[in-house]
């Protein structure tokens, strides 16, 4: 009885909500439909083979994979520190780490420029001591991507470390395993699924990076022109190329979603 009433109630309330709900859905879906409808499906292969498209594709994939690898290498230890050590200012540190996730990427690019630019805080010293200049190099692309994408990995891994049973690590210690061995043989395998999810998110974010990259690394074809930059540029001269690159990015995003579906949509 109550179930029937509830159903009737929800049906009655539906029209009031239907209009904005459909509108919201349209806002999210129509652009993607537009992209797919307008895609030059017949010339897909040829467009992908076009030198500037391929160049951007290869650069994007290389830099984003580098950024992800570095994020794992540095981010996992940082996540461990946040999750396992008690120290003053930990909350502040965590806020600092999350900041790049909400910061407009352009601001990140400006900040990177001021830090690593030729007259920047560290860049100045790098230039004088080693003759290294970072801005407008492929390295700068990787740094920009690392800056915006690493927080995603750190947050995912830290959450996993927090919720994982400390007892397993203690049990391993009583069996004679030192800290490193415990981490390698027990902690890491136990958080592997979360690490994978965090890495996938991190990679997707690095692949889509635009604002910080164009500000800090510029837009030099073959060196710093990643896919999103190429899309933006191609849109003005050769829309087909832009559409094809957009399709590739869309496919990657869908791929990541499919990969993570069990983690995010299991409850649904």
């Amino acid at each position: 009885m109550t179930q029937g009433r509830a159903r009737r109630g929800s049906v009655r309330r539906l029209p009031a909500f239907a209009f904005p709900a459909v509108l919201a859905l349209l806002v999210l879906v129509v652009p993607l439909v537009g992209l797919i409808v307008r895609a030059p499906w017949g010339d897909l292969g040829a467009e992908l083979a076009a030198p500037e498209v391929r160049q951007a594709l290869v650069l994007s994939i290389t830099t984003s994979l580098w950024a992800t690898a570095l994020a794992i290498l540095f981010g996992v230890p940082l996540a461990w520190v946040l999750a396992r050590l008690e120290f003053r200012g930990r909350a502040l540190l965590r806020a600092l780490i999350v900041l790049p996730m909400v910061l407009p990427p352009v601001v990140g690019g400006v900040a990177l420029l001021l830090a690593f630019g030729r007259r920047g805080l560290i860049g100045q010293w790098l230039d004088q001591a080693f003759g290294i200049t970072l801005p407008f190099t492929t390295t700068a692309v990787v740094i920009a991507e690392l800056f915006v994408a690493m927080p995603f990995l750190i947050i995912a891994v830290e959450a996993a470390l927090r919720s994982s049973e400390r007892g397993y690590e203690e049990a391993a210690a009583t069996l004679g395993a030192g800290r490193w061995l415990v981490f390698r043989r027990v902690t890491l395998p136990l958080i592997a699924p979360s690490l994978g999810a965090g890495a996938a998110l991190c990679w997707a974010r690095a692949l889509g990076e635009f604002g910080a990259t164009i500000t800090f690394a510029g837009n030099l074809p073959g060196t710093t022109q990643t896919m999103p930059l190429a899309v933006y540029l191609a849109l003005q001269s050769r829309p087909e190329g832009a559409i094809v690159l957009s399709l590739v990015l869309l496919a990657v995003s869908l791929g990541v979603l499919v990969l993570l579906r069990d983690r995010w949509f299991a409850a649904a």
């Binding site: 210690a173 009583t174 069996l175 030192g178």
Partner: peptide, 8 residues
Amino acid sequence: PTERRPVG
């Protein structure tokens, strides 16, 4: 440390 104690 725990890992070097002869304790199970």
